[in-house]
């Protein structure tokens, strides 16, 4: 283990399941930087246009089994940051605590640095002619604050900040199933996501009914099996509304078959999964 690994660094953990798009993080960021300059850290943020913290929306499925997920994104304070490498004259640098800072003086006029971020999270300030981004509110942490403002304002507990070594963070990520964005570019982002599948993966859902006593009723506890190429992908039981939902499926992942059985009745069908789908009301016969 190198000394670099043992030094505590700031990380942000976001639980996608708990983000409800209240936008307090987005607004706290604007509150902090619009109209305020913090010398050595940043020029003020323009009143409109920048989204140092952005929130993306994703609806999955439809009808009564729809779900909606939100993904807050920001500068990832990457351990191996493309932007730091691109800034040849120290315009962007990483501090010992992991926070990546754009020097507001050195970076003046360097619009090309905006393109250096693979996540699209460096913004160009037209008026001040300087690239800008979220920097973990380092000026506040340096003044004794315990957490950045986005975490302070988060009303659901979806965001947490922690200052730990990379190895501690890696084991936490392993333990809790945390993921970074764009793992393929190997930038070692220090913004982590829990339940990312709610945004990135697909689901298959449906409602199971059957006729009995002259009426149609929901079927509670029906066995639903999802298969692909003869292999069982997953199976579950319907709830009291007769509903089922298989999650964490890859988009455009081909043909699946679904079979349902209850009380001696059954239903089966094949379908092609492009994106999340509600198969609708499925009647056993």
């Amino acid at each position: 283990m190198t000394t670099q690994d043992t030094k505590a660094k700031w990380n942000l953990v976001i639980d996608v399941d708990k983000c409800e798009n209240c936008n307090n993080c987005f607004l706290a960021d604007k509150d902090e930087y619009c109209g305020n300059t913090f010398p050595g850290y940043t020029e003020e943020q323009p009143r409109h246009g920048h989204r140092w913290i952005d929130i993306k929306r994703r609806e999955r499925g439809s009808g009564s089994l729809i779900d909606v997920a939100y993904l807050p994104t920001m500068c990832n304070q990457c351990g191996d940051a493309t932007c730091v490498k691109a800034a040849k004259n120290g315009e962007i640098y990483q501090r010992e605590d992991g926070i990546v800072i754009i020097d507001p003086v050195k970076a003046k006029g360097k619009k090309e640095l905006v393109k250096a971020c693979p996540y699209g999270h460096i913004w160009w300030n037209e008026e001040k002619e300087v690239p800008q981004k979220w920097f973990f509110d380092a000026h506040l942490l340096d003044a004794g604050w315990k957490e950045p403002r986005c975490v302070q304002s988060c009303g659901t507990g979806a965001m947490q900040s922690l200052k730990v070594s990379d190895s501690e963070m890696a084991s936490k990520a392993e333990r809790e199933g945390l993921e970074g964005l764009k793992p393929e570019i190997k930038n070692k982002p220090r913004v982590w996501y829990k339940n990312l599948h709610l945004f990135m993966k697909e689901h298959v859902a449906g409602s199971v009914v059957a006729d009995a006593n002259g009426v149609t009723d929901c079927v509670d506890g029906a066995e639903v099996t999802l298969k692909q190429g003869g292999d069982v992908v997953a199976s579950l039981k319907t709830d009291w509304f007769g509903d089922f939902k298989f999650d964490k499926l890859e988009p455009n992942s081909g043909t699946y078959s679904i079979s349902i059985a209850a009380e001696g009745k059954s239903y089966s069908a094949d379908f092609e999964l492009k994106e999340s789908v509600n198969l609708g009301v499925l009647k056993l016969s």
């Binding site: 009564s64 009914v209 009426v215 149609t216 009723d217 929901c218 009291w240 509304f241 009301v281």
Partner: peptide
């Protein structure tokens, strides 16, 4: 009945019956 309300509400009778029973 749940069937009576279905054309008004757009909610399937079976869902209303399931909810009522629960």
């Amino acid at each position: 009945t749940p069937e009576w309300q279905e054309p008004e509400t757009g909610i399937p009778a079976h869902d209303v019956r399931a909810l009522a029973r629960k």
